[in-house]
């Protein structure tokens, strides 16, 4: 097989992978937005009081800034917990895309880029789980 046709096959493989990747991204955003919207409805239903003062920064309570806390709050059907859960899913969407890339490059036996994607994935996990940066 000459170099030209190998390249053509590469491009075709890429195309299928690209389409799948598009689906991963789109469904992640859609799911996240739906959960945020449900959380928003619950939140507004229960917050008839005057708006919180966002001029003063005091940070979110612990149960709204850790994965465990957020899941717990969402489980108890708190509006703010549900919103944070949706946002957590949104943050996870690009991460899922990188996980997907690792798989796609493995499938193409492109070892350089398997390494590159793993490195990016490692950096993302470091930021998400190292705690307080």
């Amino acid at each position: 097989m000459d170099a030209q046709s190998t390249h053509a096959i590469d491009l075709q493989k890429d195309k299928r992978v690209d389409q799948l990747m598009g689906i991963v991204l789109r469904s992640g955003v859609l799911l996240a937005a739906t959960i945020v919207a449900i959380g928003g409805a619950v939140f507004l239903e229960r917050h008839r009081l005057p708006v919180a003062d966002y001029h003063v920064f005091d940070g979110e309570p612990t149960q709204l800034r850790t994965v465990r806390g957020i899941v717990g709050q969402a489980w108890e059907w708190h509006g703010s917990g549900l919103i944070q859960l949706g946002l957590l899913l949104l943050i996870a969407t690009p991460v899922a895309r990188v996980v997907f890339s690792v798989g796609a490059f493995l499938y193409e036996r492109d070892w350089t880029y398997v390494l590159v994607s793993l490195l990016v994935l490692g950096l993302l996990f470091y930021s998400l789980f190292s705690g307080h940066g």
Partner: peptide, 16 residues
Amino acid sequence: AASAGIYLSRGYIDPG
């Protein structure tokens, strides 16, 4: 996403 993780755990992301 890399910075959002840090912002979330630091309490900079308010649900409301």
